[in-house]
């Protein structure tokens, strides 16, 4: 089976198993634990999350960035605002998904139609998982660069990520300035998702965030 097709199926599986809380409560828990995980992951001095009536603000003042989003109820329709945080707060751009109203490439439908997941799983390997995670989180093929005040820190914000939880998770990764930490995290995620796909197991958020 063509490697690209194999990886396409794994791409979907990773999103399904790690980034698809369904009920409102599951989404709430996911977002709560996401916010909680950031202090340790970014190795900063305080928890960077602030809850405001219906929205959540994450400030990463040590790299002059902030982002904001509402409690996500509909994965096909949401916004995540990115701000430049300096002497004032400037909106850089809004990551906006309107796929409930506008057509977007139906990769899910196509993959499900051909129904080759089981066959793809026969080729499950670290190599494939790594490639997929690279494209999804670590180095999205289509991305915009944001300048970090830290020289060695490359921030690549993915341009085509439609799943909000994947988007938030990739922000978490991208805003971590330590290459060593990123590499460690990549190794951990590869292992985690390889096992999850093999056993068809949903990954609970506390495990996802380490």
């Amino acid at each position: 089976m063509d490697n690209n097709i194999v990886q396409a199926y794994f791409w979907n599986e990773i999103i399904r198993l790690g980034f698809s809380p369904t009920s409102d409560k599951e989404k709430k828990v996911w977002l709560y634990l996401y916010g909680k995980s950031l202090k340790e992951f970014w190795e900063i001095e305080e928890y960077p999350t602030k809850n405001e009536s219906n929205s959540i603000i994450i400030f990463h003042s040590n790299i002059n960035l902030q982002y904001k989003f509402n409690h996500i109820s509909n994965v096909d329709n949401y916004e995540i605002e990115l701000y430049y945080l300096s002497d004032s707060l400037e909106l850089m751009w809004t990551h906006d998904v309107d796929s409930h109203s506008y057509f977007s490439f139906p990769e899910n439908s196509l993959l499900n139609k051909y129904n080759k997941l089981r066959r793809a799983k026969r080729s499950l390997s670290i190599h494939h998982i790594e490639k997929v995670l690279n494209g999804l989180i670590i180095h999205p093929a289509i991305h915009q660069h944001i300048q970090s005040p830290i020289d060695e820190h490359e921030i690549r914000i993915g341009g085509g990520i439609y799943n909000p939880f994947v988007y938030l998770f990739h922000l978490r990764f991208q805003l971590c300035p330590s290459n060593e930490k990123r590499n460690e995290e990549k190794r951990r995620l590869v292992k985690l998702f390889e096992e999850a796909i093999k056993n068809d197991r949903n990954i609970p958020p506390n495990e996802l965030f380490g």
């Binding site: 305080e46 960077p48 003042s61 040590n62 945080l85 002497d87």
Partner: peptide, 15 residues
């Protein structure tokens, strides 16, 4: 420094 870091999140204040 510790106080400065605590105040970083205050967007209503200049540096």
């Amino acid at each position: 420094l510790s106080y400065f870091l605590s105040l970083q999140k205050k967007t209503t204040l200049t540096k």
